[in-house]
Amino acid sequence: MGSILQRKLAFSLLFLITVVFSCCKVNSKCEFKAIFNFGDSNSDTGGFWAAFPAQSGPWGMTYFKKPAGRASDGRLIIDFLAESLGMPFLSPYLQSIGSDFRHGTNFATLASTALLPKTSLFVSGISPFSLAIQLNQMKHFKVKVDESHSSGPPGLPILPSNDVFRKSLYTFYIGQNDFTSNLASIGVDGVKQDIPQVIGQIAGTIKEIYGIGGRTFLVLNLAPVGCYPAILTGYNHTVSDLDKFGCLIPVNKAVEYYNALLKKSLSDTRTELKNATIIYLDTHKILLDLFQHPKSYGLKHGIKACCGYGGHPYNFDQKLFCGNSKLIGNASMTAKACRDPHNYVSWDGIHTTEAANHRISMAILNGSISDPPFTLSYLCPS
């Protein structure tokens, strides 16, 4: 009786192993080998702070329990995407210590723009690492990978294989700083004049990456920045400019104009690059819904920042950013973080919380905000 039971158990175990290995073999065909990300602080995993080390708490408090080079309390959308593909978090291209580039790298840095800055570097808080610079970094990275595999012995263990570039996901989350950096000074109409150039730069970058082997591209559109506390407190407006949710109507209409042009440009680029997969991700749609109906997503606060100073309704002051201290009147004041960032959409008035990023990521992964309408699993390279 015991031997029969043992045989049944052995057969069951063998069957289970066969199923598991068969499953994994099939799924392995659908795995991207790497992610290469281009962007600004919305997807920077530490590039800016690697170049200019200074970040302190309360950044990273939710997930990392310490500052981790991210403009949030925790994980970003790019972190969730990497996790969903079974990859580690992306190492910043600018981080020289402890980086592992076998699964790609992150060229994004805080305050980056799609267009080259019109003024001197760092004027108005703009980073020197524009999209054109990030593209050049990508090209340099590819040259180094190719060289490491053509010089005899295998390349350094921190570098990917040289066939990785056709089997990677290229993600873009950039354009917000082009839109917002001059908004207060030149207004909505002035900002709109540059939008075609911004979008042209993004489309042109996709074409150049296609030329060096890239085939699958995800492009996140512009967020409803008219709901951001930083814009609500920094852009001159009247009560009539606000919608019933407290967001700036003229600013968000300009955002819609931007996103419509971006979607059209990506469609045209898709037609031009016949065997490329170019996906427009309408993250604006779900983020706007998060701001308008936070309770529908299990959150409590929409346009109020978690980390800031200034009280109701925005908890944001243009002169005192998250984590900083300043003498106001006769007292030293600090922009402190709330104790429950999981209840907020806005982390610091400029960036989103991990809670919001997670919900946006879920929408990306299930394909509900993709155009063409594909889930991420359908975008696997052959």
Rank of each mutant, 00 (worst) to 15 (best):
T271V: 05
D348L: 06
G329I: 02
L121H: 12
I78G: 01
V251Q: 05
L115T: 11
R7N: 12
F179M: 08
A254K: 05
A184Y: 06
E31A: 13
N177C: 07
N42P: 00
I133W: 12
L327Y: 09
A337W: 00
A50V: 03
A108S: 13
D178C: 03
P58F: 03
T105L: 05
K253A: 09
N37M: 14
L218Q: 12
T375A: 13
W49F: 15
S22Q: 07
N343F: 09
L273P: 00
G98W: 11
Q292A: 12
N275T: 13
A254F: 03
H312Y: 14
T352K: 06
Y210G: 00
D348V: 04
A331Y: 11
S120M: 11
T45L: 04
W49R: 05
A203K: 11
N275W: 01
R102N: 12
S346P: 07
H237D: 07
G125P: 15
N136V: 03
S368C: 06
L13H: 05
P341L: 12
S99C: 09
N182Y: 15
I202Y: 06
L14M: 12
Y63V: 06
R166D: 14
V164T: 12
V255I: 15
S185Q: 15
P117Q: 08
I249D: 10
S41M: 06
L116S: 13
S377A: 14
L76T: 09
L288M: 07
Y378L: 09
I206L: 15
H140L: 14
G98F: 08
I209G: 00
A355W: 02
S127A: 10
D317N: 15
V20K: 00
M138H: 13
T353H: 10
V191F: 04
P196E: 10
S361V: 01
G310H: 10
D348F: 02
Y170R: 06
Q197P: 00
D163Q: 08
I328C: 03
V345P: 01
L290K: 11
Q55N: 07
F129A: 02
L365Y: 12
E208W: 05
P229A: 10
S41I: 05
L365I: 15
S240Y: 09
A305F: 02
R70Q: 08
S22Y: 03
K285T: 14
V188M: 03
S28M: 13
V239R: 11
L376Q: 03
G214C: 03
P157N: 12
K263N: 15
P153K: 11
Y228D: 14
F32S: 01
Q193S: 13
